[in-house]
């Protein structure tokens, strides 16, 4: 595989994390415009851990994910009362605040005679873990997909379990869920925190893949794209957001002749898709029917 293909595949993998994070919140019925904040904050935190404090990468990813998860839970607790558009705009406001603060923050330490650390609007250079350890692009891509697979498996397990039903109950009708004895506050903060952690893993990987992060990358466009991926792929299963990412980053990247007209084609296609499938390609009903087909087949075999 040439580097270009590996880079595209890695990007698909890393963007998938933020799409999955937005999807997890969509399950609970909330639309977040702000998942990019956790992606970005974690990229900075993880970068700081490995580049400034010389920690190993697993510690960097852990630090990034924890920072993202904790901040997400705090934001989740503050916005507990909000739903619908109010929640969406509050998350947007928080994410932009985080981005604008990162534009101001300058903390640098000296590592091997060089100044390393966030440098305001100039971004955070020198997250060189990959070069220092001589890790190839392919190896890093495998790391990305390994963690992505773990995340997807986790989400699929959640979906099959009672927790998945709990989240869908919350998303479908939170008052009814509460009347059935569900502590809606606790599960909402849990979901928001988990979504923060997932975005955070993606962000930590991103920082080490590109070796350089700047606040501008974590603007609201990234967040809204993440949201769109879930909706394009479908809200019925965790594979939905992955399909969405693959369609946008993968499929359209492959069609070279529409370069320059990509958004015109993509935008039009998605708008038409949403007319016929307002909850995405793999929505709950289609997933339900697919499952019925599969279980019938299994029964026939048995």
């Amino acid at each position: 595989m040439d580097d270009y293909v590996i880079t595209v595949l890695s990007n698909i993998g890393m963007i998938s994390f933020i799409a999955l994070s937005a999807y997890l919140l969509l399950l609970t019925g909330e639309i977040s415009f702000g998942q990019q904040a956790y992606f970005g904050l974690s990229a900075y935190a993880a970068g700081a851990a490995t580049a400034m404090f010389q920690l190993p990468i697993w510690a960097g990813i852990l630090v990034g994910a924890c920072v993202a998860g904790i901040i997400a839970m705090v934001v989740g607790a503050l916005t507990l009362q909000l739903s619908g558009l109010y929640f969406s705009v509050a998350t947007l406001a928080f994410a932009e605040m985080a981005r604008l603060i990162l534009l101001i923050v300058e903390i640098q330490v000296e590592v091997d005679g060089e100044m390393v650390g966030p440098e305001g609007a100039n971004g955070f250079h020198g997250i060189r873990w990959m070069f220092e350890r001589d890790i190839s692009l392919t190896e890093f891509m495998l790391l990305i997909y390994g963690l992505l697979a773990l995340t997807v498996i986790f989400l699929l397990l959640v979906e099959r379990s009672r927790l998945g039903s709990v989240l869908r109950m919350l998303g479908s009708d939170d008052l009814l869920a509460e009347m059935q004895g569900l502590n809606t506050v606790r599960y909402r903060i849990l979901a928001v925190g988990a979504a923060g952690v997932i975005a955070g893993v993606g962000g930590a990987l991103y920082a080490h893949f590109t070796t350089y992060v700047e606040p501008q990358f974590f603007n609201v466009m990234l967040g809204v794209h993440a949201l769109a991926y879930g909706l394009i792929g479908g809200l019925g299963t965790a594979f939905g957001p992955l399909i969405g990412v693959a369609i946008d980053v993968g499929f359209l990247e492959a069609i070279r002749f529409i370069q320059g007209y990509r958004m015109i084609v993509f935008g039009g296609l998605v708008a038409i898709l949403l007319i016929f499938m307002p909850r995405g390609i793999l929505d709950e009903e289609r997933v339900h029917r697919l499952k019925a087909v599969f279980s019938r087949r299994n029964h026939a075999r048995a």
Binding site: R168, M169, S172, D173, L175, L176, G181
Partner: peptide
């Protein structure tokens, strides 16, 4: 009537047992 409309009949009842388990 309030139900979880995109869940099956079984899931509606099953998920609602939450507080028992």
């Amino acid at each position: 009537i309030r139900l979880f409309p995109t869940m099956t009949v079984f899931q509606n009842v099953w998920a609602s047992q939450h507080s028992r388990v």
